[in-house]
Nucleic acid binder design. Structure first.
Lengths: 244, 244
DNA sequence: ATAATCTATTAAGCTCATCTAACAACGTTA
DNA sequence: TAACGTTGTTAGATGAGCTTAATAGATTAT
């Protein structure tokens, strides 16, 4: 009696999820289909099925159709629920492309804690029910806010921030305005493409505190982010908008 | 010249991140410290350091202090930025406990796509800059909304939803009100603890369409969620609030 | 019924990340 | 300088998950 039942691994969860979906759409799951769906070879699937059968998660007789036990179905559904939750968050809330939303969700579904599931669900409940958080009131603003998405039409014709921006576009404090020793809080990374990525990758994300350590020759600054020093060109620093 | 430089693995990213943090707080990273920080044995660290050195990501002479190369530092910082982004989202936005926010972020940081990073950053920029999305206007409401967090004081004394709720608490349509053949959209899972988890795990998350297939004896219903059939007790079904 | 074809299983071997346990280098103290 | 304790390295083993290639069972066509 060897109890190998420590924890179910991401790969095994994926197998269960795949079987669940296959049974749902084609009534039966065969080794070949599972292999194709997961992008692995059939030779990998057989031993995995044995294992799942030994764990009591699938019903599996050699060379027969594969089906989930109630326990396996529970795991599959739970995994799929996490997947859907994450996929929707990335796609519907953050506007990430379907493809990336799906693949991000696919990898992260195995790691999201129960508490995370619960709170993410609450988030959707709020979006759905609070009039101030509802689709038009929050998601549309998020997706169309000209402060964050340059070129978008004004989300709200009485938004003071947007008005301030269009009247005096220069009224903003950026990282390049700080003197050595001064610090501020990042409000926005006002750049796109490579520059944006580079700045974000250095930890310059909103609500982070950043301090200018000293100015370097050749138009660079030495900064302190998350307790670590890095250098930035002054050019790059102008794209880091600070909170007032 | 064997090019083993396919992709950097999660474990290697973790090593780089750990070294980065150690160098930041103690100036030096030693094998022992890295092992302790990652919760592995020193015997696992040495070969990993060899590998990272071969990839040009760390500077490493046997038995000497370990340091990141500029390339390694870039990877470490990028990983850490993802970590912070996710951690903050879970903790600050979703109110997940520090502990879970950290561990969720720690596992997911390796899988979040560039697009996900970008959009999550945009989300924070919006929260920070849009007056309607700002801390008081959005996060506080999210965290204190009595619609979603029972027992919280009213977030806003003229919220029509909350008013409706307190005047006529029975005015709501739940899954148990549907007849076989009818369907609806989940707005909220109005339950806590085990019941909530069970319902969420079955895919009953907000914005999901659910159809009642038929009533079963013994007070159960057969439902269709995400193209799959499941059963629920009528008791459980009453906790699934549907959108009007 | 038999051959051809498809599908599933098995065995051997690979990579990754880890462990344990023996061993080597170094620094400190006696 | 000799001995000891700390730290780092190495070798060998493990386990998960995968591949490939050979083999075995089923199904279909002739």
């Amino acid at each position: 009696m060897k109890s190998k039942n420590l924890q179910i691994s991401p790969a095994m969860e994926d197998y269960l999820e795949t079987i669940y979906l296959l049974v749902g759409e084609r009534k039966v799951a065969r080794v070949k289909d599972i292999a194709a769906a997961r992008g692995v070879k059939p030779g990998s699937v057989s031993p995995a099925m044995k294992k799942l059968a030994a764990m009591g998660l699938i019903r599996y007789e050699q060379r027969e159709f594969i089906d989930l036990t109630p326990e396996g179905e529970e795991v599959a559904r739970r995994t799929l629920a996490r997947h859907e939750l994450l996929r929707r968050f990335f796609h519907d809330v953050l506007n990430v492309s379907q493809k990336n939303a799906r693949s991000d969700a696919c990898a992260m579904e195995h790691y999201l804690s129960d508490e995370g599931v619960d709170r993410l669900t609450k988030f959707f409940e709020f979006i759905q029910r609070c009039p101030r958080g509802s689709k038009t009131e929050f998601l549309d603003r998020l997706h169309h806010c000209p402060l964050v998405n340059p070129g978008q039409p004004d989300c709200d014709h009485d938004c003071p921030e947007v008005a301030a921006m269009s009247r005096t576009p220069a009224v903003r404090r950026s990282l390049s305005d700080l003197q050595p020793g001064e610090s501020g809080t990042v409000a926005q990374v006002d750049a796109a493409g490579q520059v944006r990525r580079r700045l974000i990758d250095r930890g310059l994300i909103p609500q982070t505190t950043v301090e200018v350590v000293r100015n370097l020759p050749r138009g660079s600054v030495r900064i302190l982010v998350n307790g670590q020093e890095t250098s930035l060109t002054t050019q790059e620093a102008t794209h880091v908008v600070l909170a007032p």
